[in-house]
Design a protein around this nucleic acid. Structure first.
Length: 925
DNA sequence: TCTATTTTT
DNA sequence: CGAGCAAAAATAGAT
């Protein structure tokens, strides 16, 4: 049997895959769909053909030889989309990693290389399969050269095969004649002019009869449609030139040795390099093919459960001096807890009791009189030393904690430390025996800093990204069961799951530390984020009193007015409908009542506030709807919503998430206490339900325009810095400087405009956005921005610099080294790219402000404890800190807030704060 | 589970 | 030329 060669048209197949597969992006933001699709097509073909040789040909992106001859006809091809372009080098990297022979040569198109190699190989007695999306290749078809054209259909990829026979059947001409057909009909995408007035039908008919354009010209007067006859006569030179253009060079000057392209078997492509690259690109289902070559995960075989006290003692003793990873397996899980009866309440309730005990000896007594707080502790300190120590009556939590505390390991790594601090009883203290803030390492936070745009940081992702391990996820193992239920129903899977937590922490600590060092984020991690874990744990435990009665009363008041509005709206609409359904509302307003065109649409009419605002003055029903919306929002989300989060201790314990935002800000969930109403008076009243405990007051401090000050510092703009040095109303000063008028003569409108511009600048302004904000024309807005940049030239330079830097490096950084990758900047989509540009301008500013308040939080938190005060930091809202303050400590707390917030960073402008005290959150703000 | 809307900084 | 502002979370409705 003769040998077989598979030849792939690289760009053509990559292009086909790019358009055939929906956009895929890995977590680095690299587009990967074309590479993925290419590999799928390639593997499908290889499995079918089982060839002895494999080669991929690429074009080099300079004008090709054939086209250079007729320079006037080149250049109408559209430039390649950026998302595809960036995948070309990636594809080549992948093929190289697989050891696939790549041919490319300046001056030749892939067609020519394919043609040459195919013909030479055929001459050497080899069967050839040419894979391309391009029908031009059909001219190469013979009995031994098969052209394979993949088509992506709903049912998957189907491949059309053409030997000489199939070409003749389908196109009524031989492969060689196919060139002449193309020369007559032309091809705009290939810049082949053809003969005007001759399309596919006519061309095929002519060539089928005469065999070539030369012979057709010899019988030109006999040609069937008279139009073809005259046109060919007139444009014969064009036809000849087209033929040259359409002919694939089968004698290209290349050194190609078939032997170099040898492929013993398909699995030879599954190399380790290719495996690692597939992992990086997150081709999860391709990875299965690599099973033979995949780094074998043997750790799993050593997972072990310890139930006996003696065994546990020996195990913990073996930790001494070693690096370890651990995981405290919680009994209840805060996640989803409030949906299941009142799990969360019990959890926090037990903390309240635990911490009401005496300060001294708490470590000893905590938990001793309760059921164990945690289920067990998984610890890993080597490839074969991975144990889950299960809590039981014979081996109570207290004992496990004690042994762990005395283990004297060199370092302690874990995924998601914060909840575990609570389980270990490390609230308000930074060490537990030999475990301390200094030797703890939170892998999840490290992974977040290294790539803050991921949605989640589960252990299997961290294992894959930083240790090259492919392991089963929690979901794979125990699905949605809680740990407690899993321990009972799926003990083996449970053991794997918790041991993996510890093992992954152990295994990835070093790589994560190294990456943090390589990216300059060591200090950010050690000095800001790790201490913050302790600060936040304490704040969450503390919580804030919310009065259920006050909320109820407030909600009842809203209900009265909501009823009233509802009736009125139904009357005005002439029927009852669900006002909260944008769909139904849209139909009522814009169809039934035919109000002026429902402007914005995506999946119907927009009923957003800015649309309704414009209609409200003229239509009472719209004004009522707006009020109704406002009130139902207040009632459902705040009045009714918050009550559900009040724990047994009468307080709301929000969760502050440290690994959610792309910029470095914190987020608050269950409930979100960072969007409690403020702007509208009626909503603001909700803050009256948040109270300090008896004998305490609230002291609230917020940074004044921290982002604008950060901008002044980072840009170094003297005029803006000077404006802040004058310590006057900054928006008025801006108006005065931008409009060149004396400070005292600035009108309220001018000040308002200046304020909007100041805000807009921080968000990465566009004239469109500002025009929306101020309801002015885009042109006017553009003028404001221009004048602003004229006034503060360095700001313009700074913002442009940020975008340029982001485009070059792919990310931006804050003053403290925090990174934000911006994959959107490489998008070919205008909207996506503009979005990327705004992100580039906003992130360093928002992120630096976030860094600063985090520093301030740690300092305030630590100092309240260090000074032995009773007052506690309980809330943060981006630029604001709230301290529940013992009445007699108010002056000291004010001083601490002022000093620590002020001193959190040294900028070229002062970091000013406003401090207020009050007997509820409304008054304190 | 996704979309539209609203709330905050 | 385009189409719509930075960062979040919760709710109710629709699918």
């Amino acid at each position: 049997m003769s040998e077989k060669l598979v030849l792939i048209d690289g760009h053509s197949i990559l292009n086909r895959a790019f358009f055939g597969i929906p956009d895929l992006t890995n977590s680095e933001g690299l587009h990967t769909n074309a590479v993925y699709g290419f590999l799928n097509i390639m593997f499908k073909i290889l499995e079918e053909e089982q060839p002895d040789y494999l080669t991929v040909a690429f074009d080099v992106s300079e004008p090709t030889f054939r086209h250079k001859m007729f320079a006037e006809y080149k250049g109408t091809r559209k430039p390649m989309a950026a998302e595809l372009k960036q995948q070309v080098p990636l594809m080549k990297e992948m093929l190289r990693a697989m050891g696939v022979t790549i041919v490319e040569k300046g001056g030749y198109e892939a067609d020519d290389l394919l043609g040459t190699i195919a013909k030479r190989s055929e001459a050497a007695g080899v069967e050839v399969a040419v894979v391309s999306g391009d029908r031009d290749l059909l001219q190469l078809a013979t009995d031994h050269i098969k052209i394979r054209i993949p088509k992506t259909k709903r049912t998957g990829t189907e491949i059309e095969d053409y030997n000489a026979k199939e070409v003749l059947e389908k196109y009524q001409v031989t492969p060689t004649e196919f060139i002449d057909v193309k020369a007559l009909m032309g091809d705009t995408s290939d810049n082949i002019p053809g003969v005007p007035g001759i399309g596919e039908k006519t061309a095929t008919a002519i060539i089928a009869k005469y065999g070539s354009i030369e012979n057709a010209y010899a019988h030109v007067d006999e040609l069937k449609p008279p139009r073809a006859s005259t046109n060919l006569k007139e444009h014969y030179d064009m036809a000849q030139m087209s033929k040259t253009l359409a002919t694939i060079d089968i004698d290209a000057d290349i050194a190609y040795k078939l032997a170099d392209a040898h492929l013993e078997q398909v699995s030879d492509l599954y190399t380790e390099e290719a495996y690692l690259l597939c992992k990086r690109l997150e081709f999860k289902n391709l990875l299965g093919r690599f099973s033979v070559e995949a780094p074998k995960n043997t750790a799993e075989e050593h997972f072990k459960k310890i139930e006996k006290a003696q065994e546990a003692e020996a195990f913990f003793a073996s930790l001494r001096g070693k690096a370890c990873g651990f995981y405290v397996v919680p009994q209840e899980e805060t996640h989803d807890a409030h949906t299941e009866a009142d799990g969360q309440m019990n959890l926090f309730g037990s903390f309240a009791m635990q911490n009401s005990g005496e300060e001294a000896g708490q470590q000893e007594t905590a938990g001793s009189c309760h059921i164990p707080d945690f289920l067990g502790l998984a610890v890993a300190c080597g490839e074969e030393e991975i144990c889950y120590v299960e809590a039981s009556e014979a081996l109570p939590c207290r004992k496990i904690r004690e042994l762990f505390a005395g283990s004297a390991a060199a370092s302690y790594a874990t995924l998601d430390l914060k909840p575990q601090l609570k389980e270990l009883g490390m609230l308000e203290k930074k060490c537990l025996g030999t475990i301390s803030e200094e030797n703890l390492f939170d892998n999840t936070i490290a992974a977040y800093l290294l790539n803050p745009i991921k949605n989640e940081y589960p252990y299997e992702d961290i294992a894959k990204d930083y240790a090259g391990l492919m392991i089963l996820s929690r979901k794979d193992l125990i699905e949605k069961l809680t740990y407690e239920k899993a321990a009972e129903k799926k003990p083996e899977e449970f053991l794997k799951c918790v041991c993996y937590m510890a093992y992954v922490a152990y295994k990835t600590r070093e790589p994560l530390e190294k990456e943090l060092a390589d990216t300059g984020m060591e200090a950010l991690f050690r000095e800001i984020e790790m201490p913050l874990v302790f600060t936040l744990a304490d704040m969450e435990k503390e919580g804030i009193i919310a009065s259920g009665e006050a909320l109820k009363e407030y909600g009842d008041k809203l209900a009265v007015r909501i009823d009233e509005l509802e009736r009125k709206i139904y009357e005005e609409a002439g029927e009852e409908f669900n006002i909260n359904s944008p769909k139904q509302l849209g139909v009522i307003l814009f169809e039934k009542l035919s109000l002026p065109n429902g402007k914005k649409t995506k999946t119907g009419y927009s009923t957003a506030a800015d649309v309704l605002d414009r209609l409200a003055p003229d239509y009472p029903i719209v004004a009522d709807i707006l009020e109704y919306r406002q009130l139902t929002k207040l009632k459902s989300t705040y009045a009714d919503g918050l009550v559900n989060y009040i724990a047994e201790d009468g307080r709301i314990h929000t969760s502050f998430n440290q690994t959610i935002t792309a910029t470095g800000r914190l987020s608050s969930t269950e409930p979100n206490l960072q969007n409690i109403p403020m702007r509208i008076e009626l909503g603001r009243l909700i803050r009256k339900a948040f109270l300090p405990k008896s004998g305490f007051v609230f002291v609230d401090a917020d940074y004044s325009q921290i982002e604008l000050r950060v901008l002044a510092h980072l840009s170094g703009d003297e005029k803006l810095i000077e404006a802040y040095r004058n310590a006057q109303d900054i928006h008025r000063t801006t108006a005065s400087q931008v409009f060149h008028i004396p400070f005292d003569e600035v009108t309220d409108l001018q000040r308002r405009n200046a304020k909007a511009v100041n805000f807009g600048i921080v968000y990465g302004i566009s004239s469109f956005g500002l025009s929306q904000d101020l309801s002015i024309t885009k042109k006017e807005a553009a003028e404001y921005i221009e004048r602003y940049f004229e006034t503060y030239p360095k700001i313009k330079g700074y913002l442009d610099g940020l975008v340029a830097e982001a485009k070059e490096k792919g990310y931006v950084t804050t003053m403290f080294g925090r990174r934000r990758p911006i994959p959107e900047l490489s998008s070919s989509n205008f909207m996506q790219r503009s979005f990327g540009e705004r992100i580039a301008m906003n992130s360093p500013i928002q992120g630096t402000a976030a860094d600063i308040i985090k520093i301030a939080m740690n300092r305030v938190h630590d100092r309240l404890l260090a000074e032995g005060l009773k007052s506690r930091l309980i809330l943060t809202v981006h630029d604001e800190l709230l301290v529940e303050t013992a009445v007699e400590e108010e002056q000291e707390v004010r001083k601490i807030l002022a000093e620590e917030m002020h001193g959190a960073a040294q900028l070229s402008v002062m970091l000013e704060i406003d401090v207020h005290a009050g007997s509820d959150w409304y008054q304190a703000k």
